[in-house]
Simulated assay, not measured.
Amino acid sequence: MLGEVAKLQEPASKGLERENWPGLLPMFSLLDTPRIDAQLIDAKNDVEAVAAWLREYQDSPQTLKSYRREAERLLLWLSSHNQSLCDMNREMLRQYEAFLEDPQPAEQWVGVSKPRHHSQWRPFRGGLSPASRRQSLIILQGLYSWLVEAGWVDRNPFVLMRDKARRLSNQAPTIERYLERDLWGWFWQWLNAPAKIASERDAYEHARRRFIVSFAYLLAPRISEMASAQMGDFQETEGRWWWVVVGKGSKLARIPAPDDMLECLIEWRQALELKGLPSYHESTPLIRALDKRRGISDNQLYRLIKGVFSEAADALEAQNGKPAYVGALRRATPHWLRHTAITHQAQSGVSLRYLAESARHSKLDTTSRYLHTEDNEWHHEQQRHRLKTDPKTPADPL
């Protein structure tokens, strides 16, 4: 559909090229002139402008993926209304919010998961939840802010939203998407319970998912960091082991590897028929495919972890576990393990300074969202406010 972007070879343009767009929607009216005079990007139409924005995130694969998805949905919706990015106003934004909740007509917008080039591919699996709609608006708000600065559009309609500050803040007061201590305890015990091992492959898969979860919990990596990790990223310096990672924003970091992590690493290497801890600069994948040699992609790792959560939810439900815990496991994504890791470190007394270093947050405000101490104290203090005595009947005259 969008051949003008086909010349872009950067990862950001993937998914925005003509051959990758099924012909299920009207064609864009691709303008040959910029929107306003002071243009700071080399773009001739909306798609090229969005592709320029996406290239800013090419070093963050997961961010790029989610941003591309939301921008693509907006562009398709605008195209279906014969509108462009500069035409978006407050009323259209209200209509788009409603569309995200219930994409209609469904046969045009909603479908099962298919490869991006498949004729039956659709932008949605279903209507978005309130949290997903909020995240979509956050992303698009950022897109429009960038396009204003780039000189492609002259206004950002998101600033007109009355509850913008509340709804479009990307940071909730505290982190809620994590496994509570009791649920984590059950989950880890379930994961380590003796399994029915019918084959060598079963034994390998059991060892792999145990290592993946332990790695995610003990070092709080992002999923892209897990998928790209090498054995040699674990390094010893003066008798101490560290995990070295190039993370978000291409920032190099060194995280202390606790003893539990080293034990899990040795066990995992045994499953790979390797001995001891990694040697210096051992440039082989840390997490591997079934052949025990090749690495796995972000998407494969994502599906694997989601599958573990789904199995755990089924098991807990069969045990008549708390419905809230069962629901949490069904909603959980791989990133919940990172949130769980940081939250539990905070609860264990790790100082805010070192917590921020391990989480690789650029701002302490981000890390402080994992501290639930004030919530606990507030809840305890609120217990002072009680109905100490039953009201008298009849009530005494005043």
Rank of each mutant, 00 (worst) to 15 (best):
residue 12 A to D: 07
residue 18 R to L: 07
residue 31 L to S: 15
residue 42 D to T: 09
residue 43 A to M: 05
residue 48 E to S: 03
residue 50 V to I: 15
residue 52 A to F: 09
residue 59 D to S: 14
residue 72 E to R: 15
residue 80 S to C: 08
residue 81 H to M: 06
residue 84 S to F: 00
residue 88 M to Y: 00
residue 89 N to C: 00
residue 93 L to V: 06
residue 97 E to L: 13
residue 98 A to I: 01
residue 101 E to Q: 11
residue 106 A to L: 03
residue 109 W to K: 02
residue 110 V to S: 02
residue 117 H to V: 12
residue 119 S to L: 12
residue 124 F to Y: 13
residue 128 L to E: 01
residue 130 P to S: 06
residue 135 Q to F: 06
residue 138 I to W: 02
residue 143 L to M: 13
residue 151 G to V: 11
residue 152 W to Q: 07
residue 163 D to Y: 08
residue 166 R to T: 14
residue 171 Q to V: 07
residue 180 E to M: 08
residue 181 R to V: 10
residue 182 D to G: 11
residue 186 W to V: 04
residue 198 A to K: 10
residue 217 Y to D: 01
residue 220 A to V: 04
residue 227 A to N: 03
residue 253 A to Q: 10
residue 257 A to G: 03
residue 260 D to V: 03
residue 265 L to Y: 01
residue 270 Q to D: 11
residue 276 G to E: 11
residue 277 L to W: 06
residue 282 E to F: 00
residue 286 L to H: 07
residue 290 L to Q: 05
residue 303 R to K: 13
residue 305 I to S: 07
residue 309 F to Q: 10
residue 309 F to H: 12
residue 311 E to F: 06
residue 311 E to H: 13
residue 312 A to Y: 04
residue 314 D to S: 14
residue 327 G to R: 11
residue 333 T to C: 04
residue 334 P to V: 06
residue 335 H to E: 08
residue 340 T to S: 14
residue 341 A to K: 04
residue 342 I to K: 05
residue 346 A to F: 05
residue 347 Q to C: 00
residue 350 V to T: 15
residue 353 R to A: 10
residue 370 Y to T: 09
residue 371 L to T: 06
residue 373 T to P: 00
residue 376 N to F: 07
residue 386 R to C: 02
residue 390 D to E: 14
